[in-house]
Amino acid sequence: MTDPRTAPVTTTDAGIVTVRCAGEVDVGAAPHLRDALRAPIRGHARGVVADLSAATFCDSMVLTVLFEAHRDAQAHDVPFAIAADGPAVTRPLELLGLDRLLPLHPAAAAARAAVTGTPEPRRP
């Protein structure tokens, strides 16, 4: 059973869907994350961002879900990006070489900018 603190939370803004998971994102959360990413991709959203910037642990099943979502997004011509800045997500991706294959960004704003094709907003 997925801990409600790690269940994906989906928001939509101007056709861009952001799916956010925080805390320990493990094998229990993977199917929920898969479904949360698959629906907007297959529904031809304007873009999809997987925001794992608040994840403290990332299971190998979640890495598979991210890879599948990327492949699915390409097949449906939907821009897709991943936001992850902590070692819980970035380190396993680097070890597996997936950081060179997946659209990985250090923050949700950068991932959203990549999906929309607009420059990242500057901080004051």
Rank of each mutant, 00 (worst) to 15 (best):
A45G: 08
P119A: 12
T11C: 00
P8R: 11
A14T: 13
P124V: 00
H105R: 05
M61I: 00
T10W: 07
A81M: 10
G28D: 07
C58N: 03
E24G: 03
E24R: 14
T90D: 02
A29L: 03
T2S: 14
T10V: 15
D59T: 07
V17Y: 01
E24D: 15
H76C: 10
A55L: 06
D51T: 10
A36E: 04
H70P: 06
C58T: 02
L101T: 13
L104T: 02
A88E: 02
S60T: 15
A36P: 09
R34N: 14
G97A: 09
A30V: 02
A7C: 03
C21N: 13
P119M: 06
T12I: 06
A73S: 13
H32N: 01
A36M: 08
G47D: 04
D85C: 10
M61C: 13
T118M: 11
P121Y: 04
V62P: 02
V48W: 05
P87C: 01
R122T: 13
L96K: 00
T18G: 03
C21E: 08
M1H: 10
D77W: 04
V19M: 11
A114W: 04
H44R: 15
H105G: 03
T10P: 08
L37K: 07
A55M: 05
R46A: 15
A88D: 04
A14H: 15
R122S: 11
D99A: 15
A83D: 01
H76P: 00
T118R: 13
A84R: 02
T118P: 00
H70A: 11
S53L: 05
G117P: 10
A110D: 14
V25S: 09
P103F: 12
V62A: 12
L93T: 02
A88F: 02
A81T: 06
D26G: 12
T11L: 02
Q74I: 13
P124F: 04
H70V: 00
R71E: 14
H44Q: 14
D99N: 15
A69H: 12
I41P: 11
A110T: 14
A22C: 06
P4N: 11
V48H: 04
R71G: 00
T118Q: 14
H44C: 07
A75Q: 15
L33Q: 08
F57C: 04
A54R: 08
H76M: 06
P119Q: 12
T18F: 01
S53H: 05
A54L: 09
F80H: 08
A45F: 10
F57A: 10
F57K: 03
G117A: 08
G43Y: 03
T10F: 04
V27K: 05
L98W: 14
L63V: 15
L95D: 00
D85F: 01
